[in-house]
Each structure stands twice: as C-alpha cells, then as structure tokens.
Simulated scan of single mutants.
Amino acid sequence: MRSAPHARLTGTGSCLPEQRLSNQDLVERLAARGVETSDDWIVERTGIRFRHFAAESQTTSDLALTAAQRALDDAGVAASDLDLIIVATSTPDMVFPSTACLLQAKLGASGGAAFDVQAVCTGFIYAISVADAMIRSGAARTALVVGAETFSRLLDFDDRGTCVLFGDGAGAVVLQASDTPGILSTTLHADGQHAPILCVPGQVRGGAVQGHALLTMDGQAVFKLAVNLLDQAAREVLDQAGLTTADVDWLVPHQANIRIMQSTARKLRLGMDKVIVTVDQHGNTSAASIPLALDAGRRDGRLKAGQRVLLEGVGGGFTWGAALLQL
C-alpha cells in the first residue's frame, strides 16, 4: 500500500510595497506630531532600519497576489493547478469574504478550497501546518500559502513604542505532494490568557468602530514570553523529527525584533551566521515576515536543496509555533 504523501516546498515569492521609509523618514513624520524618537533609538532596541507602507489604493490581497504569482512562477505551477489557498493575515481586505477568496479570484484559480488563518505573527506557521495536514491526508495536492499584511493601518503614530516596529508586505510559498519528505514536523500552541499584552481591541458594530482599533502592546511582557516559547517550540519540532539543533542548517524566525532573534538563537546554541535576518529591511510584517525571509534566503543562495530549515513564530493571541523543513 502506498504511504501518505509528504508536503514539499517547491516555490517562494515576496512583495514589498514601493513606499520605503527609513528610520529618519519616520522620525521626521513623528516629529510633526510632537512624537520624539531617533534612528539610533530604533536601531538599538529593534534592529529595524527600514519598513514599507502600502499605498492608499493597495490592499492586502494586492500584495498577496504579487507574492503568489512570484511563488507560482518559481515552482513552475499554474494557478489553475491549485486546489488549496490559505492566507495568513490579521489585516484582511474586508470583514468577509476571506482575503484568500479575493486572492483566488485575482489569480483566476476558482474551485479549490480557500480560507484565511488568523494567528497574527504566528499565522504563517499555522497556515503551513494546516496545508501540510491537508496534503498528507490527500485532501489537497498543490497548495498556495501566503502571509500578507497591511499593518501600517493598525498603527498608533502617537505611540513611538509600537509605530516604529511594523511594516507591510507579503510572502508566499507553494507546497506540493511528494514522495520525498519536505515538512518534517510542526507544532502549534496558544494561550488566550495573554491576549491583552498584544492586541487591537476594537470591532465593527452597526457600521461604526467600537473600542480602540489600533495596536496596543506591552513590549516587555511580549519579549519575556516570546524568547522562552520560541525555544520550546523549536525543541518540540526537533524532538518530533528525532533531530537536534546540530542538525539545523538555518533558523528562519519571525522577524519581530533583533534582540528576540539573538536571544532565541543563543538558547538554541545557534550562531547568528545560521539565522536569516531581514527585520532591518522591512520591520515586523507579522504573518508575512517568515515567508519574506524564506524567499530572501532562497533567492540569494543561502538556502539550498537538502538543507534543514527551522521556522518559528510568536504573536498576539498569545500564539506560537514552529515548523521543520527539508528543502
């Protein structure tokens, strides 16, 4: 009897909006609002030097479309071959339908399943875990998984502790059924008790916004939780695969803050020369950050066929998870 198929990554793609803001650009914008910060302050605390903001006319599905088309081209797959589209996002185009359905229409790929996953910065890990399970079960054979965000629209530009951190973008991967192992293991977790430390506590009711519809964060609390939970998730997926950190060629973490990434790598006893870092170029792009980093690493030649790559993320919810891939 034939064994269950594996889910294998066959293509990646990314999209960053044209508008690119340096720290100094943002410093000047904030100064006009009476908010003081500096390039040195931002770099020292976060490692961020640039971020991209979507144009007024650009939607999350627009960014997702460009990233998706590039991933499909990279994989040599036609949109008509897709039988599953999952978009991880916290900034959908509208309340409903899902951004995945809107993306499916733009791709001209109707018929397969399409839905969104909302786990904030862990969203991409959640999404590829679901796609992996569906491919392994036989429910899908060719999946497009996208992390896409327009987080700039959730920012409070009177709060220098959060507005300097985030940017917009999209990253996408194509996963296909294969006899060769690709996604070796995944793990997902959440603890809703920590929801208040990172959230957007607003909603639409009766056609009007109720509550506070901008991002709020307790940075110190998030940092303390993040480092320990990322270490835990990484070790779980390695244990599941019967491997150790010595077997990892590359760590591709959620690009939130260079200090979190450095602390996580140190706990795992991985040198920073084994960590894909892109946070300096686009800030925290939430669910888009891991696939953006994956695509950057593949296109510049660092990530190569046969290597083992550890993905990990943590985000509002509080959510966290990891995935171990063999390229």
Rank of each mutant, 00 (worst) to 15 (best):
S178R: 06
G147S: 05
G242E: 13
A256F: 02
L26A: 05
A67K: 04
R259A: 00
A75Y: 06
R8P: 00
R266L: 12
P253C: 05
G271L: 07
T46F: 11
G47S: 07
V314M: 14
T46N: 02
E56L: 11
L102V: 14
P97F: 11
R45G: 11
A323C: 06
E149Q: 10
L144E: 06
A113H: 11
L188D: 10
L325F: 01
R235Y: 07
T285C: 08
L311N: 02
Q58Y: 10
E149H: 03
A322H: 04
M261N: 15
G306T: 12
V35S: 09
F124G: 00
A64I: 08
G108V: 13
T216A: 12
G317A: 01
A119W: 08
G167L: 11
A75N: 04
N23C: 12
S110D: 14
G242M: 14
Q262F: 05
G167Y: 06
I125D: 02
L294V: 04
L21P: 04
V200F: 03
A226L: 03
L102D: 01
A322G: 04
L188V: 10
R153G: 03
A140Y: 05
V309I: 15
R8E: 02
V174Q: 01
Q24F: 13
P17L: 04
F318R: 02
L325I: 05
L184I: 13
W41C: 10
M1C: 09
V117T: 09
Q19L: 14
R302L: 12
W320G: 01
D247C: 06
L230E: 08
L65I: 07
I128N: 00
I86A: 01
D74A: 15
I48T: 12
L311V: 13
T37W: 04
G207I: 05
S57T: 14
G147L: 03
V227G: 05
Q262E: 15
H282E: 08
V35C: 09
Q255M: 01
M94C: 11
N257R: 07
A67S: 08
S137T: 13
R8S: 04
T285L: 00
V27D: 07
G315M: 11
G138I: 12
V77A: 14
L84V: 03
G301P: 06
S178K: 06
A195G: 13
V77K: 02
N284H: 05
D168K: 01
T278I: 09
Q24P: 07
V87P: 01
A233F: 13
G316W: 04
G317N: 00
V248P: 00
A143S: 12
L26V: 13
N228S: 15
L165F: 04
C199P: 04
A31W: 09
M272T: 14
